[in-house]
Nucleic acid binder design. Structure first.
Lengths: 117, 117
DNA sequence: GCTTTTGTGTACTAGTTAGTACATAATACA
DNA sequence: TGTATTATGTACTAACTAGTACACAAAAGC
């Protein structure tokens, strides 16, 4: 599967085709990190950044922060908070979701979103 | 809400009423940590242990590891893996779940478990 | 052609995590 | 009553996280 770094680099390069302000250096400067660090992150030389930095990066690139966080193997603290509030319930939900086939999860999400479950 | 430490201590003390082998010392020894460390964990003097140690503790106390992990403010790497595989879908599901009232979540979990959604 | 901007290599680090090691005082038990 | 076991206080730490700081060679732009 696509790594965090590859995904970020692809997004940034795509934006750069229309706007030269999306260089490693300038994006790094806008999100508040060193250019060499962002370069290493994009090439997967170091682990993905902190949740805070991923948030700024998502914002800057116009991407969904939850998607970037997931690619980084993290779960947003928002979600962690939701889970932490009802441990047993989520333990049950998680166990079911782990067993469910892909198609079932897709359908579940859709139905929850549409409110017809 | 009940903290991780309080919960663990309550579980352990309950077991201890019927079996003196559930002292801080002996439990600590069986899960492979120092007694002083487990003591501090139970009293909330230090942050909850690593996922690995929480797993052993759950096992030892006959508790659900996902519940203990949730109380520790963590999400199991199992769940993280599930989420990482379908980032956008889970982003959507999470956003809905954040808005749902308690009763709705309870019902959703039950219906998912029973397979009638 | 030269100045500016670029991406990346190398070297370093403050703060955090997840504990250990040992001492000591209270408690249980035989 | 003495010995064993207990919980906890104090002091320390290896490894990891999430970066910084700066130098340098290549490429772009005017």
């Amino acid at each position: 599967m696509q790594s965090f770094g590859d995904y970020v680099r692809a997004c940034r390069e795509r934006l750069r085709e229309e706007d030269p302000r999306f260089s490693v250096r300038q994006v790094a400067h806008r999100i508040g990190v060193e250019p060499s660090y962002l370069s290493k992150v994009e090439r997967g030389e170091v682990a993905p950044p902190s949740e805070t930095t991923i948030g700024k990066l998502a914002d800057e690139l116009g991407e969904d922060a939850d998607v970037l966080l997931a690619l980084a193997g993290k779960v947003s603290s928002d979600l962690q908070e939701v889970i932490r509030k009802r441990p047993e319930l989520f333990a049950a939900l998680i166990r079911e979701l782990k067993r469910m086939p892909d198609k079932a999860v897709v359908q579940l999400v859709r139905e929850v979103r549409d409110g017809n479950w």
